[in-house]
Design a protein around this nucleic acid. Structure first.
Lengths: 199, 199
DNA sequence: GCTCGACTTGGACGCTTGTCCAGGTTCCAC
DNA sequence: GTGGAACCTGGACAAGCGTCCAAGTCGAGC
């Protein structure tokens, strides 16, 4: 086995863990399955992690880690606010449909964290990161369309998060993208109106 | 142990199982924990169920079983459509806040079912039941307010389901009812408009 | 070239898991 | 009262789990 600093091994195992959870679910993500996915011996796991729960926590934090090249803005500068919002949301549905098992994994990890006292605080922190990320997107839209958000960015973000969460939960049950597209159509004007400050 | 027909024992165990999952999560809902909750010996479980997975499936179906006295309509006949929708949604948030662990349990069961081939079809069927239940509520509102739904009931139901799912997922992460109340305020006009047929 | 801390790992520990067998008990129909 | 179906259950099974120890190996700094 090539020698690596512990920090790097941790990241390898976290990424392997996320792959296993996406493929097999939380239930199948045993320590043995994770080290097999990472291609390392069993004992390596507890050299870099105190416990399996600790690794799960780091994996959950990893999914909201800032990575370069994200935050897409799939709309033109000439679009109306409604069209811009619609574009971003449809893009989200597209991405989701490509890898629903990944979002299912994130949901399972969230539920597991809430059930585990030492990890129960994480979902709240992850949500805060979500709000920050969505705020960035909203800012980008407003800047590109040269409009000024008429409400606090955080509150707008939380509105959007409710919408994407609704899409996520529904699509995880059925995989019915058509119904979700209809919801996007209905929700886009509402969100655009919220940004423009109407009530 | 008092003798009971197998069917009744099944229901006892299903209800005990739901209590355990709500309290301890899917992870802690072992066969032994469930029979302890139900107050029956271990071997009783496999007398009435072929497997633990079969019981989980029946428990998931149980949560959308029609029960008498449900489908509340907390709004007055003189209310506007927006107020009626708002009332129903705030009522939902209230109910959720009383027992969030129950909704978390339902989410965990859903995820588990999606991961288990023999149960993977259930979430879709449960969603169909949800749509039926919500349709009943929408019909009741329309009837009481003497308005006619301008779109297919099923589509309206699916819109509402996306909203409640968004509320559920968000509140399970943070327990932040305030943000959810704001979302209800923003979503109510949109849903009312959808019912009245506007676009 | 030696030292020492960092990294690696085979193998085992005690415990819990879902499942199942084989024998016991109850009670209704005749 | 006898037979048999339905219900009950103590106890065991193999398999799998997270965790840990103690010994091994490497490589940078002196």
């Amino acid at each position: 086995m090539t020698r690596k600093p512990a920090e790097e091994r941790r990241r390898d195992l976290v990424e392997a863990g996320l792959r296993v959870i996406a493929r097999e679910g939380m239930h199948g993500a045993t320590v043995r399955a994770i080290v097999a996915e990472a291609g390392v011996p069993l004992a390596t796991f507890h050299y870099v992690f105190d416990s399996r729960d600790q690794m799960i926590g780091e994996a959950y934090a990893y999914v909201v880690l800032p990575r370069v090249g994200e935050v897409p803005t799939p709309f033109s500068a000439s679009a109306s606010p409604v069209d811009a919002v619609r574009g971003v949301l449809h893009d989200w549905v597209d991405r989701f449909s490509e890898h629903p098992e990944y979002e299912l994994a994130v949901m399972e990890i969230m539920a597991y964290c809430r059930r585990t006292p030492s990890l129960a605080h994480l979902p709240g922190e992850v949500q805060t990161r979500y709000v920050e990320i969505v705020s960035t997107v909203i800012s980008a839209i407003c800047e590109q369309l040269e409009v000024e958000p008429q409400q606090p960015l955080d509150e707008l973000s939380q509105l959007v998060l409710h919408v994407t969460d609704g899409l996520t939960y529904c699509m995880l049950r059925t995989g019915d993208a058509a119904a979700s597209r209809r919801f996007v159509e209905a929700a886009a004007p509402m969100l655009a109106a919220a940004v423009m400050g109407e009530r």
